[in-house]
């Protein structure tokens, strides 16, 4: 690659998902993050109970993210080769797990604000 700047990366992601979908996803991720920060500040605490409830979904997020990437790229588990492949693989799983956990935590906190 000639140069990997933020602008190049954004251009590449816009091409992968299409400009509309990419920015929708960015806004969605941003909203969930903002929502998470909002409920943390509103409640002045991280609710252990809600977090445990949300973490139940973490394995689902991990498996879902991995299956999606494998399907999207015509790959299978056996194609994982060197260390970098395992790192990417783990990264996708962790992102899926973390993403869904945060989403579920935020969802609970917004839907049932009093129950904590």
């Amino acid at each position: 690659m000639k140069e990997l700047t933020l602008e190049t990366l954004i251009a590449v992601f816009e091409e992968i998902y299409g400009r509309g979908l990419f920015w929708t996803l960015v806004v969605l991720a941003g909203l969930i993050t903002l929502g998470f920060a909002y409920v943390l500040i509103r409640d002045h605490q991280l609710s252990a109970r809600r977090l445990v409830n949300a973490e139940i979904f973490a394995p689902l997020g991990a498996v879902g993210a991995v299956l999606f990437v494998l399907w999207f790229t015509n790959s299978k588990l056996g194609d994982i080769g060197g260390p970098i492949d395992w790192i990417i693989f783990a990264g996708i799983a962790i992102a899926g797990a973390g993403g869904l956990t945060i989403f579920m935590y935020t969802l609970q906190s917004i839907l049932w604000p009093k129950k904590s």
């Binding site: 251009a11 590449v12 091409e15 992968i16 790959s75 970098i84 990417i88």
Partner: peptide, 16 residues
């Protein structure tokens, strides 16, 4: 032979 290199060809190359 790596999966990540395949990902680049399959997913990232056309957008680039």
């Amino acid at each position: 032979e790596l999966w990540i290199s395949w990902l680049m060809k399959e997913v990232a190359l056309k957008p680039t």
